[in-house]
Design a binder for these strands. Structure first.
Lengths: 195, 195
DNA sequence: GTTAGCATGTAAGGAGTTACATGATTTT
DNA sequence: AAAATCATGTAACTCCTTACATGCTAAC
């Protein structure tokens, strides 16, 4: 596994883990997880559902609305036992595949079902990935005498600032994880969540 | 035009407008324009250069290093008159095609060669696109009782904050444009352009 | 002399979009 | 009764990446 399109599959599996759903509803939820206003098309979602069905991770319950014939079926997808197993295993993975731009958001969304150690590993991995990028950019920016107009400089500045902010966010989250301020929602041990 | 892959073509044209370059150097520069640490592969760049050559917008100067035979050629690409024309025309376009995530960065990078009116139109278009997204997300977030765990909420919060920050950045830039604080580098007439 | 960076490409395939095609249900 | 939203899919296409294949040139 750890293919490129794994993020979508994981999102689907995780959402169906919460509750069975139609493809239509699923798409909206996936859009939230994928975040930042990008919308997933049905042309991507339905083939994905098909392949997950073929793999045996989900099943399609067609409630054929009585007489069955001409009516277009409404399909509710739900997770199988194998699907649950697969999802759980996928959540253990805390290596580079979980740090990618795409995958990270989805992994983060399911942190409630990920154990603390893995959470910290993922957050730290993500952070060092971004830090790497940051000084990569900074190095090449110095080295090559590049296009020096004010707009290019402003674009660069703004980009760096955004990444720095992202890194700070991750640092805060890591600190909070380590301090145990974010509790496992399954745990009933009193969580004194401090904003 | 205004195809999806137009951003890369525009970037190449714009960079070659500054100076003739090897494909190798071009890639590095494009990476800067595309920003945020993404790197363009040769598998994308060279076919693009080929198609731009076929279109007559650029020419490939092969300096066959004397005897010409077995040596692998080093190729310097440079803009033709038609390419220059095409680029200039492309910069006039200030509609939705210039507000896309991909395209916007590239358009911004060439703002020095774009007139103030078009700059403001693009910045405003970009801003309203982001605002649209923002309250789209906010609306759907309220409506559907969705996954309520702390991590999903935090992800959402962080995403919204980032977009808001982006909008503020754009607002500042628009104000500065209108106040004429950023001058056209070519212009010597002190333009206090007040929209 | 060998590593690192410079330099040019191609073939296969993956991930996703757009546009199309169809129909049911709810709200106004 | 019309409009909006819910709902399911497919075919063609595009952009881009990965992996491969080749060779030159400077530095250590």
């Amino acid at each position: 596994m750890a293919r490129r399109g794994a993020a979508l599959e994981l999102a689907v599996l995780g959402l169906l883990h919460d509750a069975p759903m139609h493809g239509y509803e699923l798409r909206k939820q996936v859009n939230v997880l994928l975040g930042w206003g990008r919308v997933l098309s049905y042309g991507t979602l339905y083939p994905c559902l098909k392949s997950l069905t073929a793999a045996g991770y989900i099943v399609a319950d067609e409630s054929s609305t009585a007489e069955g014939r001409s009516r277009r079926a409404k399909i509710v997808y739900r997770l199988t036992a194998e699907g649950k197993e697969h999802f759980t295993q996928a959540l253990e993975e805390s290596g580079p595949a979980a740090w990618d731009d795409e995958a990270f958001g989805v992994r983060f969304a399911f942190f409630a079902r990920t154990d603390t150690a893995a959470r910290v590993r993922i957050l730290e991995g993500r952070r060092s990935r971004l830090e790497e990028r940051l000084d990569n950019v900074r190095r090449t920016a110095q080295r090559s005498r590049e296009r020096t107009d004010a707009y290019t400089a402003e674009l660069q500045r703004h980009g760096l600032e955004s990444v720095e902010r992202e890194i700070n966010w991750l640092t805060d989250l890591i600190d909070r994880e380590r301090a145990g301020l974010i509790e496992d929602p399954q745990d009933e041990t009193s969580s004194t969540s401090q904003h």
